[in-house]
Design a protein around this nucleic acid. Sequence first.
DNA 1: TCTGGGGTCCTAGGACCC
DNA 2: TCTGGGGTCCTAGGACCC
Length: 409
Amino acid sequence: MTPATPPDTTPATTATPILHVDMDAFYASVAVRDRPDLLGVPVIVGGGYRGVVLSANYLARHAGVGSGMPMTRARRLCPGAEVISPDFDTFTTVSSSVMENFRRITPLVEVLSLDEAFLDVRGSTRRLGTPVEIAERLRATIHDEQGITCSVGVAGSVTMAKMASRWAKPDGVFVCAPSSVTTLLHPLDVGELYGVGEKTSELLHRLGLVTIGDIAHTPVRTLQRAVGDHLGRHLHDLAWGVDDRQVVARNSSAFGAVMGGDPDKSMGASETFGHDTDDRAVIVRELLRLTDRVTTRMRVAGVAGRTITITVRFADFTTITRSRTLGEATDVTQEVFGEAVRSYDALGLQRARIRLVGVRLEGLVPRELVHRQLILGQREHGWSEADRAADRIGRRFGRDAVRPASLLT
DNA sequence: TCTGGGGTCCTAGGACCC
DNA sequence: TCTGGGGTCCTAGGACCC
C-alpha cells in the first residue's frame, strides 16, 4: 500500500497520491473553444439521425440534456441548443497533448478515455509538491494550453479519486482523505458507486439496499447471492473504502496500445442502419464493410483474431450475438467475412427487421505468432496477399482507393 | 421521443479431458 | 451400478464504462 512516510513530507501527502483528472464536458468544450459566437449558447455534440448525445455544455445540461440521451429527446428538451457534429480528429489531438502533459508529471498515467486519466503522483511529490498542488498546477496548464477546464479528484485509491472528481465538477479539485472515506460514501445512493449501473442499482433497491452504508452493513454472502460472487465481494470492499487496484501506465485500449501495456483483447465495428431492413443483400454488404474496416485496423495493429462474433440488433432493440472460433487466428478479410455471413445465415431469419449489425474479433494475438498451416490448394494465402496489396494502395491513395467489389456502388 | 459505437469483464451451461 | 471432482474451452448473454 502506501510507502513509509519520508521524514520531510507530511502524512497527507502520501495518503492521497492518486489523481483522477476528468475534462469538463470535453467534446462540447473543445467544439466551442474557438467559437466565441457560442458563448452563452447551449451546445450539444452529437447528431445524426438515430444518434445520441455525446457531450453537452453546462447550459444544455441545465435544460436536462445528458450524454447518452437520444438526440430527438435532447432537441425537444433544449430546442435553442446548437448541435455540433463530433470531430474526433480534433478531440484526439487535444487529448494527446493533455495526456503528454500528465506524463511530464509522472510516468504512471492510466488513460481511461479521450477525456480522463488516473495519475499516481507518489513519486513526484518531492519534485512538484503535494498532490493538491500538482492538481492545481495541472489544471492551470491545461487551461492555458488548451483553453478548456478540468476537474481533479485526489484520494488514496483509484475508486475514491474517480468519485472525488465527480464531486469536484465543474472546474475544481476535491480531496478525499482516507479518514473521511466512509463518512462521505455511506449516505450516498448505491448507484453512485463506480461499477453500479442502472440494473444493479434497481436490483439492490428492490432488496432494500438503498445507500452505500446499507451495502457496507450487509453480509458479503448475501450480496454475492444477489449480484454474483465477484461483484458482491467488490461492492462490499468498496463500501468500506477498500480498493487496492493500482494505477497501470497505459493508453486507452480504444486508441491502440502505443504506450505498451496490455494489448487489445478484441476489435470490432458495428453500425446502425438509417432505416431498419430485412434485405439480406443490404445486410451482407454491411457485414463486408464492417469486416473490411476491422481487419484493416487489425493488420495495421499487427494482430490476428481467432473468434469471430457477429451482433444483430432487431427493430425492437433485442440484440443477439453468434460466435465461431477458428482453428487458427486470422486477419484475412475474406475469411472473416465468410464466417460472419455463415453465422448470419445460420440464424435463418425470414422477414425480421434489423436495426444494427456488428462484427468483432476476439482472442487477438500478435500476427507473427500465427503459424498458418500450408494446405495445398488453399486460397487464403492469395486473399492475404490481396489484403496487403489493398492496404498499401490505401495508405498511398486513401482509404477509399481500394474497396471490395461489392462495395463499389 | 426512443435508445451510437468503442470496448472490458463476469456468469452460466455444456463439452471434453484427466 | 452410482451419478466424483476439477480444469479448460467454447458459446451466449448481460452489465458496465466513456
